[in-house]
Simulated scan of single mutants.
Amino acid sequence: MRASTRTRPAPDPSGVVGTVRLGRGARALLPRVRPGDVVALDQHDLDPATARALVDSGVAAVLNASPMLSGRYPSRGAEVLAEAGVPVLDGVGAEGVATLREGARVRIHDAQVLDEEGVLLASGRVVDLETVLTEMAQARLGLTAQLESFTRNSVELLRREEGLLLHGQGMPTPATSFAGRPAVVVARGHGHLAELDALRPFLREQHAVLVAVGAAADDLRKRGHRAEVVVLDADGELPSAPALRAATDVVVCGGQGRAEVTASLERLGVRPLHVDSSAATEDAALLIAHAGDAELVVTVGLATTLVDFLDQGRPGLASTYLTRLKLGPSLVDAAAVARLYSGRVRPHHLVLVVLAGILALLLAVGVTPVGQEWWDQLRDFSEGLFR
């Protein structure tokens, strides 16, 4: 039973109370979520980056009309929520979610969703950590089918967009110069702000080209950086007007809403470039940097493992795979750069070298006859000062 039966149980103060935030997908909900809210969505296989963002937002509970784990692969979003202690109900159903109102106060108790008067609105299944781990073990068996589908999609994408992926045909020519400079492509993913902070010496000393994917341009701006290139999904979230105006190049990727987005940008005084491709926005950003002959491409906030790619749950998975093959050894994750990059020689390094050289010279002179005579004179002079 998913829809309300409008029964009225006895008042019970236990459970989690919060304000309802409704949305089909979690990413669209995130800008509206406040601490203590109850998020109600309809999304299979919630990805871990979005789940962490929900945890960081301080959600009181998550209600999902769909299963948190569909069994296709071991999605880790539910695990992130369970480990953080966020109550989760899934299988609430579209009918159950339809009984909820945006901004209403509800109470989650056991597997039930109640209004302020204790009226039952919807029910679902409690998804705790034990349930998640059991179902993730079963879902690992579904990886084979997912990989087979992924292989077919990759071959089809390569056949359809061979010119763009292999030869760069249709790639725009930005005014920003990448040649001889490293490029850092920043997307909103798990830990992207921490990775960005760890890269600060690299960004400052290597004069890297900053390429922002969508709203990541605002994150760069808040950190005191400027995105020289902003790559937008025509159907996705746009960054703020100041971040767009500050960019040298703004590139819009495919999508049905391209004309509308282009018109919005032109009203801001921004004349965008375009990429006609079904590739994911972050993949288009990587290809733009590579086509510009960037000597190194560093990724911030992008997926790095196979399960991460599957967790994104998007059709663009094939483009991610082919793009990374295309960039090959020039592609490096931000975590690796932060560990390996020690920075250029700084003034205090030179001072230490000079002092070490002077000390070595004094020791060398001190063992010569002339040096011994100088040491004797210095000793006599210092003894005379204290008499």
Rank of each mutant, 00 (worst) to 15 (best):
L306M: 13
V332N: 09
V300R: 08
L322S: 09
Q312C: 05
V211D: 01
P329N: 10
R223K: 13
T304W: 03
T299C: 06
V230E: 02
L327G: 15
P239E: 02
V252K: 00
T299L: 05
P315C: 08
V275K: 07
L238C: 04
D233A: 10
F309E: 11
P272F: 09
A318V: 03
V231Y: 00
A291P: 02
R258V: 07
L287C: 10
T323W: 03
Y321A: 15
R314A: 12
G313L: 06
C253L: 15
R223H: 14
R245H: 04
S277Q: 08
P272K: 12
A280C: 04
S319I: 05
L238M: 14
R245M: 03
A208G: 11
D235C: 07
A294C: 07
S330N: 10
L232M: 04
T299M: 10
D249E: 10
A234L: 05
A227C: 07
V307G: 01
V209S: 09
G301S: 03
G254I: 08
L317S: 06
T262M: 13
A243P: 08
T299G: 06
A280V: 09
L331N: 13
T304N: 06
A294M: 04
G328S: 14
L210R: 03
R245V: 00
H207C: 01
T305V: 13
A284R: 10
E295A: 14
K222S: 12
V213C: 11
